[in-house]
């Protein structure tokens, strides 16, 4: 791979980044090539010791998506950061995706319980409309009590979700910092 091929491939892999940032990154690598050539290395040798442009782009993208998620932790941003970090290497598939699925299951289950509890009077009324003969007043009062409980669970889940999300983002950051990438023979 020569300099132009290397830079083209890198630039193409970075299309999610802003124009300014891409230019800055490409400029850093152009500088690297220039100094390498001054020392008498060929473009091919320099490109070979730099490594795969795809891998370099993956690391830059992981950092970028984590920044985005720290600015605003929307579900879309979390997912993009998650995939970017997983993309760093197969190892991350295990140590990142595993905990994520576990946490996501807990959050989903909590919200489901909260919402279903809160909505339970509707279910009782719905039932009463279809099978009026089975209607017992006790069911209605019991379901209204469940609504209260469901609302508390939902409020609790709101905080749990926030804490888990920020905890998980920290874990992603730790991953980008420590695991994989940067070494030869990856």
């Amino acid at each position: 791979m020569n300099k132009e091929q290397f830079l083209n491939q890198l630039d193409k892999s970075l299309k999610n980044l802003s124009q300014k940032e891409r230019k800055d990154i490409i400029r850093d690598f152009e500088e690297h090539f220039a100094f390498g050539q001054q020392e008498g290395k060929t473009e091919e040798e320099i490109a070979a010791s730099l490594g795969q442009p795809n891998q370099i782009a993956k690391e830059l993208l992981a950092t970028y998506h984590l920044e985005q998620v720290e600015a605003t932790a929307t579900a879309g941003n979390v997912m993009r950061a998650l995939w970017a970090v997983i993309g760093l290497g197969f190892f991350n598939l295990v140590i990142v995706l595993g905990p994520f699925i576990g946490l996501a299951a807990v959050v989903l289950a909590g919200w489901t319980v909260g919402v279903v509890f809160a909505a339970s009077p509707l279910l009782v009324l719905f039932n009463a409309v279809i099978y009026p003969e089975t209607f017992v007043l006790f069911d209605l009062f019991f379901s209204i009590a469940l609504t209260g409980l469901g609302l508390f669970i939902a409020i609790g889940m709101y905080y749990v979700t926030r804490v888990l999300t920020s905890g998980f983002i920290h874990y992603l950051r730790f991953n980008v910092k420590l695991v994989k990438g940067g070494m030869k023979h990856d």
Partner: peptide
């Protein structure tokens, strides 16, 4: 950048390109 990459890769085997993401971070 080039200087840093060279000083480190003299002693530790790295794929040099990954130094730049590190420096940016």
């Amino acid at each position: 950048g080039y200087e840093l990459v060279q000083r480190i890769s003299e002693k530790i085997e790295i794929s040099e390109g990954s130094m730049y993401p590190l420096l940016r971070r």
